[in-house]
Design a protein around this nucleic acid. Structure first.
Length: 458
RNA sequence: GUAGUCGUAGCUCAGUUGGUUAGAGCAUCAGAUUGUGAUUCUGAGGGUCGGGGGUUCGAGCCCCCUCGAUUACCCCA
C-alpha cells in the first residue's frame, strides 16, 4: 500500500512563480548588503548540538530540531543509547542520542564562525548570510518550521554608526520593495536595564522585559497582573507603569524618559544611542522609539531593532536585531562586540503578496517556443533552435504532436513571449512566422535574421 | 506544549432528522475543426468522502482515536 506523499509540517515546496518572487526579495536585500560593504558567508545546515544549546533561552532550546545519532542500535553503543534515552526521558539532553541539530538562526553559527576564525579575520568584519533555518514551532500564519533569514552583522566595531547604517539598510530595502509604511522600532537594552535597576535590581530585568514586551498585545492591566505574578512589588509596578505611559513623538519620549531617570548613567547612555541613530537615519514615520521593545534573546546589550509590518497586515515582526557586546564569549573568545540585523523573507513575502507589491514582470519563461508542425518540421526547427540557444536566447520546442490551439495555450501557460511556427511552406521558402503571444502580432522573419530579430524584441 | 475551526473529484464547494448507485461549476481529455490562441456544441475520464475503529438494518453525516491544514496562546522571522 503506497501512502499519499506529503511534506513535513511547516515546510513548503516552491514552484517557479514563487521562486521568482522570493528571488526578487533576496536580490534586493543582497544588493543593498553588498552596497554597504558586507561580504557573503554560508554555514552548514547543522551545527553541533552544544553550539546551539543554551543560546536562545529555555523556550528556544525546546524549539531546536535535534538530529538523531546514527548507529544507536549498534551493539557496542547499546548501553550508551539506553543511558542517553533515560536522560532524555528526564527532560535532559544527551549527546549519546543527539550530537547535531539544525541551525535555529544565523547569528549563533556566525558567532561560532568568528570564534573559530578570529585570528584570520580582519576586523571590523562585515558579513551577510542568506540561508534557511529551522524551528520546531507550531506553524501558523507567517510562521513556518523551515524559513529563510537574511542577516547582516558587523563584529569588531563599537561605533554607533554601525547601528545607523543597519537602520538605513532596513529603510532602503523596504523602500525598494515598496513596503513604505513599515515601522522600525528601536530601543536600547540599557534603558531597560535602568528600569530594572530602578525596580530592585538587574535580576528582575528578564521578568520585566518579558512582561512589558506584551503591552501592545494585552494592554496595561494585564501587563501589571503579569508583573505581579512575576514577583514585582506594587511600588515597582507603579514605576514601570509610569515608564510605559511615556508616549508622543520620539523627541517627547526622550524628554519624558530624561525626566524620569534624571542622571542615571545607563539610561543616559541608552538615550544617547537612540538619539544618535535617529540623527543619522531615516524618517520618523518609519523610525519609532519604543521603550517597551525587549526582544527575547538574552545576548543583546545595546540598541535593539524590530521591524513591524504595515499596520493593516496582521503579521508579527518581519525583521529584528541588535547589538551584542560579547557574543563570541560564549565560545571562549572575548572582546569582540558586534551588531546585526535580520530580515524574515518568508513573512516579507506574505506581506508583499497581501499588499500586491510584486512587480508583474517577474514571471518570465523562455523567450520563444517552436511549434510542432510535424516530425520533419521539428527536425528542421531543432537546428534553428540550437542556433538561437548558442546566441543566448532561451527557447524550447514542442516535441509532442498536438493541435495548434493546444500549443498556444501551452505556450501561454509557460509565460513564453513568442511562438515560432515553421511548417512546410516556411521550410521551402526559408522563413518563419514569429507571433507575439501577448499581443497576437505576427511577423514573417527570414531565418537568417531570426537571432537578430528576437534579440531586438522585448 | 495548550486550545478552537476545518478535511467530499486536479481546484472551489453543495450534499436535507442518518436512507437507493455521492453531485455542480471550473479545469482536464476526446470529437465537431490536419496552419493560428476565442466562443459554442457533443461526449468522456476522474472519489479508499484524510486514515483507523465504533454505534446502526443502514454512516459523507453520530461517537472515539489518529493524521493533516488553519487560527490563536506561548514564543518568534
Amino acid at each position: 500500500m503506497i501512502n499519499k506523499p506529503s511534506l513535513p509540517q511547516g515546510t513548503r515546496d516552491f514552484n517557479a512563480a514563487v521562486i521568482r518572487k522570493r528571488n526578487f526579495i533576496f536580490s534586493t536585500i543582497k544588493n543593498i548588503f553588498e552596497i554597504y560593504g558586507f561580504q557573503p558567508l554560508e554555514t552548514p545546515a547543522m551545527e553541533n548540538f552544544e553550539t546551539l544549546m543554551g543560546k536562545y533561552g529555555e523556550e528556544g532550546d525546546r524549539l531546536i530540531f535535534k538530529i538523531l545519532n546514527n548507529g544507536l542500535s549498534n551493539e557496542k553503543n547499546i548501553e550508551k543509547t539506553k543511558a542517553g534515552f533515560e536522560k532524555l526521558l528526564e527532560g535532559k539532553n544527551s549527546t549519546d542520542i543527539t550530537e547535531r541539530a539544525l541551525k535555529y538562526d544565523l547569528t549563533i553559527p556566525f558567532a561560532r564562525y568568528v570564534a573559530m576564525n578570529h585570528t584570520k579575520l580582519t576586523f571590523p568584519f562585515k558579513r551577510y548570510q542568506i540561508q534557511p533555518v529551522w524551528r520546531a514551532d507550531r506553524p501558523q500564519k507567517g510562521r513556518y518550521r523551515e524559513f529563510t533569514q537574511c542577516d547582516a552583522d558587523v563584529v569588531g566595531s563599537k561605533s554607533l554608526y554601525n547601528e545607523t547604517e543597519l537602520a538605513n539598510i532596513y529603510h532602503q530595502v523596504f523602500c525598494e520593495l515598496r513596503i513604505t509604511n513599515y515601522e522600525l522600532r528601536i530601543n536600547s537594552r540599557k534603558i531597560l536595564a535602568a528600569l530594572a535597576e530602578a525596580c530592585g535590581g538587574n535580576e528582575k530585568m528578564v521578568d520585566i522585559t518579558v512582561a512589558i514586551d506584551k503591552l501592545d498585545k494585552i494592554g496595561i492591566d494585564k501587563v501589571k497582573i503579569e508583573l505581579e505574578e512575576r514577583g514585582l512589588t506594587t511600588i515597582q509596578i507603579e514605576t514601570i507603569e509610569k515608564f510605559l505611559n511615556i508616549t508622543g513623538s520620539n523627541q517627547q519620549k526622550i524628554l519624558a524618559l530624561h525626566e524620569m531617570f534624571g542622571k542615571n548613567k545607563l539610561a543616559a547612555e541608552g538615550m544617547q544611542e537612540l538619539a544618535f541613530v535617529q540623527n543619522h537615519a531615516i524618517p520618523e514615520t518609519n523610525l519609532v522609539f519604543d521603550f517597551t521593545l525587549a526582544r527575547g534573546l538574552n545576548y543583546y546589550t545595546g540598541v535593539i531593532f524590530e521591524v513591524k509590518a504595515p499596520a493593516e497586515i496582521k503579521m508579527g515582526s518581519i525583521g529584528g536585531g541588535g547589538r551584542y557586546d560579547d557574543l563570541t564569549g560564549l565560545f571562549g573568545v572575548n572582546d569582540i562586540p558586534g551588531v546585526g540585523i535580520s530580515f524574515g523573507v518568508d513573512r516579507i513575502y506574505d506581506v508583499m503578496e497581501e499588499l500586491n507589491l510584486f512587480p508583474e514582470d517577474l514571471q518570465i519563461g523562455p523567450k520563444a517556443i517552436f511549434f510542432n508542425m510535424g516530425q520533419k518540421e521539428v527536425d528542421f526547427a531543432f537546428n534553428i533552435m540550437q542556433n538561437l540557444r548558442n546566441h543566448g536566447i532561451a527557447c524550447e520546442i514542442i516535441l509532442e504532436e498536438m493541435k495548434i490551439a493546444k500549443q498556444f495555450s501551452l505556450a501561454e501557460k509557460k509565460n513564453i513571449a513568442y511562438a515560432i511556427i515553421i511548417g512546410e511552406k516556411e521550410i521551402e521558402q526559408n522563413y518563419c512566422q514569429v507571433k507575439n503571444l501577448a499581443t497576437g502580432e505576427q511577423h514573417v522573419v527570414v531565418l537568417e535574421n531570426l537571432v537578430e530579430f528576437l534579440g531586438k524584441m522585448p
